[in-house]
Nucleic acid binder design. Structure first.
Length: 888
RNA sequence: GCCGGGAUGGCGGAAUUGGUAGACGCACGGGACUCAAAAUCCCGCGGUGGCAACACCAUGUGGGUUCGAUUCCCACUCCCGGCACCA
């Protein structure tokens, strides 16, 4: 055996052995139970980053652990290969996105192999391959046939200089990232998927999932089911004339119909037809509506901007009092939500209150809380208080509806609905969702072409199945203006499949969330001649899905919807794709930047700067190592190429080997926690592995021996009593550690504590100076155990060390170690003694001692006597196996 | 702004169901070995007071519940993620 640890020799050799034997190929059927363990597929951005290393090492550790536990485990890998960064790279380097993407995939695949992850590469999928995306197209057409796909207009960010649609990411401070032009909202026709048809099921079936509660809560809130009332505010006569419809009115939806008597105005979105009509002949209003259309479409931007409004001069009637109510245009009313119009009750809605205060509109209290929520909830129109929005008892309803006074929330709503009915105003209780239908059209090149042909005669016609896939031409290089496909006649010119006349293909591509909504099913059958086949039925659903917390809502929700839609088309027989979910925390790093002269921004890598700290030890600023010039500290954020704060795992592999990189990310903190990068302790991880190598080397140098407890061991047939207390303690530690590490890997999914436990075990073994055959047999047992427990984290070194400890056997064939229950038995245990909840001493008692005996022992303890000072204790609390608390 | 999460020594973290706060590491300090350095090994390492035994304080801030709170409740501060076209 080599006396030194040389990962550069070991790792490639072990990897070759795995590859040659097809060790990680999972058959599509087995006597063993299946375990399907998938990580979110990477975007091939160029190189692996630390987030990937973390993600796939977690997946790999679970793979090895469950394989050792006797399961047929599958760990597949693929590439989320369509998307915006490829187009950006293409513009920057004048390379076609296809080439850039495929080169990146090749490089990153080799990096995955160097990390030694147990990936079944026979199932690799890249979403940019026509053999994959043809099924996006095929499925799109099936959903269209079922009415689950439809076309309507949608709002996008528009760059008026480049004449192109911008992604939210490309809008910086309200301006286009390349042109600096002020971004505008623009309505264009887009294809939508009816995810809202599945809203109730998406909500209901969350309950049974083995997901983190916080993620389920985020999804529940995102879907945002609410029950409310939809009704019409009748137009005042003059408004009815202007809107050219005497009978109609302004349709609104509210979850607070109980506050209807508090309506003092109504508000509509800038895009609402009533706003457009009111703007005719009102230049100031027209200007305001134009102003509302400026800016982008991001919700965070809309929700934080100053609430502004302007009266339209048009009135609707309060449905009960028949008093005129003025309609305002408000920039906070969104056309996409509900009806694009709201009844405003400033007395009991915080946004309406702020708006009314700003524009001097009346505020009316119609809900009170005395007697229901206790006192101390006064009402004043001077300032908003949080309880104004709480449910309560109706008050001040007025002469037209006195019966409403005194009713509570539910009864009041019922009364309002009944009253509106009596007055001949249609009012329906309705369930609405915050969730909106999924717009999938993108005016971009590097994505799945939408399989629709626009015929001047026949309208939108689906591409016939036999003409699929609609292949994306791969040689194009985008230039940032408009959509490349829309400028490529050879792509869009075609014949109508229905009438044979000249027609035009849809030049939009699909949202890349489509690609990632079902790839995990394609892994099961990457060569299938259909979207999926029966092999998907064997592997689905995923037993564990691992990925970043940043995907908690959108990706996971779309994939759940897609799976349910596939089920309803009879393609797969599962209700939910991901039985269990592990959301890993992000890997973050410090960000340093400097504004350049032209208003741009320049980023610096953390290793290029020297950080300065303030008095509290927080980072205050930094200087460039090169010339000492000051740079700004921008705080901590996601590792990204653009911010230059990423860490390339390749350096670590080159210097220390893959096992050190794997060990480092797993020992640092729990997988669900955010990890702020620090390379300070990477060295320590390497030292541990080097020490482990030396420990096994020294043991093997003295000769391997059958481990204690095995049939041929010295310990066989001898009683436990013959072990010295030290050897007994070591065996106790070993078997406790086996229990703990199994629990950490299998149930807790917490690897840092498992590693700490194995370190403790090895530290205890190192203290052993006894070189007798019996001691060496216990030592052998402990070392074998430690190697098996670490194997899921650092499989290369463990494979090499196992071959030394057990010549002729292979680590990959070993099962998870068994806990020897007899090693766990203890005669005596130590208990903590507290006086008034403070630690004052320890007592040793028999492990079978009763509460009375424990109490007596504790009271007799010297340190307790000191605090008792002759008094009788008021109370004694005995927690079996843990502590005694004496209250004086 | 809204939704979800987090905060524990100089640093990463541990404490799994309300029961010994700081496991296990990193960094640092002292010592051994060495001509010297590296590597390795040994010791120390939350704060204050004390020669020490020990005492008191301490888990972002302020309150509360409890024999006992890092853990539960209320209010707040700061940070992170998401907000529908980054993936």
């Amino acid at each position: 055996m080599q006396s030194q640890y040389h990962p550069r020799d070991i790792e490639p050799a072990v990897q070759k052995e795995w590859a040659d034997s097809g060790a990680f190929h999972a058959p599509d059927g087995s006597d063993k139970p299946k375990y399907y363990c998938v990580s979110m597929l990477p975007y091939p951005s160029g190189k692996l980053h630390m987030g990937h290393v973390r993600n796939y090492t977690i997946n790999d550790a679970l793979y090895h652990y469950l394989r050792m536990k006797g399961m047929n485990v599958l760990f597949p890998m693929g590439w989320d290969a369509f998307g915006l960064p490829a187009e950006n790279a293409a513009m920057a380097n004048k390379v076609a996105p296809a080439k850039w993407t495929r080169d990146n995939i090749a490089y990153m695949k080799q990096q995955c192999q160097a990390m030694g992850w147990a990936i079944d590469w026979t199932r690799e999928v890249a979403t940019c391959d026509p053999s994959y995306y043809r099924w996006n197209q095929w499925f799109f057409l099936r959903l269209w046939e079922k009415g689950l796909v439809y076309k309507k207009s949608g709002m996008v960010n528009w760059d008026p200089v480049d004449m192109t649609v911008l992604a939210n990411e490309q809008v910086i401070d309200g301006r286009g990232w390349r042109t600096g032009a002020l971004v505008e909202k623009r309505e264009i026709p887009m294809w939508y998927m009816r995810i809202t048809d599945y809203a109730d099921e998406l909500l209901g079936s969350l309950d049974g999932l083995g997901w983190p509660e916080q993620v389920k809560q985020m999804q529940r809130n995102w879907i945002g089911r609410s029950e409310g009332v939809e009704f019409v505010l009748p137009y005042a006569p003059q408004t009815a004339r202007r809107m050219n419809d005497a009978k109609a009115g302004l349709k609104v939806f509210t979850t607070r119909a109980d506050t209807i008597m508090g309506i003092t105005f109504a508000a509509v979105a800038a895009e609402h037809p009533l706003a457009s009509e009111a703007a005719n002949g009102n230049p100031r209003l027209a200007e305001f509506i134009e102003e509302c259309k400026r800016g982008g479409v991001q919700e965070a931007e809309l929700a934080t901007m100053e609430k502004k409004g302007m009266p339209t001069g048009l009135f609707v009637l309060h449905p009960i009092t028949r008093e005129p109510v003025e309609v305002w245009v408000g920039n906070y009313v969104l056309m996409g939500y509900g009806e694009g119009a709201v009844m405003a009750v400033p007395g009991h809605d915080e946004r309406d209150f702020a708006f009314a205060t700003k524009y001097g509109l009346p505020i009316k209290q119609v809900i009170g809380w005395e007697g229901t929520h206790g006192s101390g909830k006064p009402y004043s129109t001077d300032a908003w208080q949080p309880w104004y929005a709480e449910h309560g008892i109706n008050v001040h309803s007025g002469a037209s509806f006195p019966a409403l006074d005194g009713l509570g929330f539910g009864a009041a709503i019922a009364a309002v609905v009944a009253k509106l009915g009596e007055l001949g105003i249609e009012a329906k209780t309705r369930v609405t969702y915050r969730l909106r239908d999924w717009g999938i059209s993108r005016q971009r090149y590097w994505g799945t072409p939408i399989p629709i042909i626009q015929c001047p005669e026949c309208g939108d016609v689906g591409v016939p199945d036999e003409q699929l896939p609609v292949v994306l031409p791969e040689g194009l290089v985008p230039d940032g203006t408009g959509s490349p496909l829309a400028k490529t006649p050879s792509f869009y010119e075609c014949k109508c499949p229905k009438c044979g006349g000249a027609a035009k293909r849809d030049t939009d591509t699909m949202d890349t969330f489509v690609d990632s909504s079902w790839y995990f099913m394609r892994y099961a059958c990457p060569d299938a001649g259909a979207m999926v086949d029966e092999r998907a039925q064997y592997w689905m659903p995923l037993d564990m899905y691992i990925g970043g917390i940043e995907h908690a809502i959108l990706h996971l929700l779309y994939a759940r919807f897609w799976t349910k839609a596939m089920r309803d088309l009879g393609l797969v027989d599962v209700d939910e794709p991901f039985t269990n979910l592990l959301t890993q925390g992000m890997v973050l790093n410090h960000i340093f930047s400097r504004r350049t002269g032209k208003g741009g921004i320049e980023y610096f890598a953390p290793d290029e700067v020297e950080v300065t700290h303030d008095a509290e030890g927080k980072v205050a600023g930094a200087r460039l190592r090169g010339d000492g010039s000051a740079v700004d500290y921008d705080g901590i954020g996601t590792m990204s190429k653009s911010k230059r704060n990423g860490v390339d795992p390749q350096d670590m592999i080159d210097r220390y080997g893959a096992d050190t990189a794997r060990f480092y990310v797993m020992q640092a903190n729990p997988p669900t926690d955010t990890m702020i990068w620090s390379d300070a302790s990477v060295e320590g991880s390497f030292r541990f592995l080097r020490g482990l190598w030396k420990t096994v080397h020294d043991h093997v140098a003295a000769g391997v021996i059958a481990p204690y407890g095995s049939p041929s061991s010295l310990g066989q047939g001898r009683g436990e009593g013959q072990l010295s207390p030290q050897l007994k303690a070591l065996r106790l530690k070993l078997h406790r550690t086996i229990e703990k590490v199994g629990d950490d890997y299998g149930r807790r999914l917490q690897f840092n504590t498992a590693i700490a436990a194995v370190r403790e075990l090895l530290n205890l073994r190192d203290d052993l100076k006894d070189a007798s055959p019996l001691a060496r047999a216990v030592s052998q047992e402990a070392l074998e155990g430690a190697i098996l427990l670490l194997a899921p984290i650092v499989p290369h070194i463990c494979t090499a060390l196992w071959a030394e400890l057990r010549p002729g056997t292979k680590l990959i064939d070993q099962p998870w170690p068994q806990v020897d229950k007899s090693a766990l038995v203890q005669d005596e245990i130590e208990l903590v003694v507290q006086v008034n909840g403070k630690l004052r001493g320890h007592v040793r008692v028999s492990s079978s001692a009763t509460g009375e005996v424990i109490e007596a022992t504790a009271l007799a303890d010297e340190s307790v006597q000191k605090y008792l000072n002759g008094q009788k204790p008021r109370k004694v609390i005995v927690v079996p196996g843990r502590l005694v608390n004496i209250v004086v």
